[in-house]
Amino acid sequence: MHTLKYVCWSVLLWVGSATMATSQTADATEKEIERYRAMISDPMANPAFLNVDRGEALWVLARGSKNVSLQTCDLGEGPGKVEGAYAKLPHYFKDADKVLDLEQRLLWCMEKVQGLDIKDVIKRRFSGPGVVSDMEDLVAYVAQKSSGEKFSVSLSHPKEQEAYAVGEAMFFRRSAVMDFSCATCHSEDGKRIRLQGLPNLSKSGNAAQDTMGSWPTYRVSQSQMRTMQHRLWDCYRQMRMPAPDYASDGLTALTLYLTKNADGGNILVPSIKR
């Protein structure tokens, strides 16, 4: 059924993006975005649910040198328990002795539980024309199992405290040829770049909650489902920084900082955005 819906969606989006390309005013674009937002209220009409389906199939697929599925992977709630796990990530994992976000944890399980060669998985981390991403699919599946729940990340372990403090410092860290930090664009209410609204992510509250609670998301402008790793990669691109390493501890630290600021926020994913 999802496949059929996906076809409908592709046609709709194609018509939609053609409309967007020719619309002369920002107003018309805003209306289009509103139309897409309205559509997300019907989760089954969101193309990212195709990723959810594929992610579920991957979750139960036996592979790797050990030829087992991810069903014994412990995302923090106990082996194989997916429900509610995303709402508490990133957090400290004793077996890895590290704070991990969802993507790092999935890679960890692929290596340790399945004995899978993750080089190829990392190479396909971001989907594109002709490239399907296992990571995007798995994130869509796992995160969706926390949809309707609220973020509640822990800062009780010293390594969680360290990651949070580092994430905060990285948020305010200025560098590169534009002297930008995340705070340049995300530390005041009601600001925008061109016509693009900028959420204030430097404090707890609605802006951080609405933002973090809507990732992973289907990006209409990219025709792909994207995860927080991709969003941070894109923001560092705008900052004129080199591409950050996928699933690195710095990105997890930033994600922990952002997610803590979103504490108590509703998770409604996968969402759909511009």
Partner: peptide
């Protein structure tokens, strides 16, 4: 957090 710790994370990110 000591600046050296942040530097180490930054190094590990790029």
């Amino acid at each position: 957090v000591a600046p050296g710790v942040v530097d180490a994370y930054v190094k590990g990110t790029w």
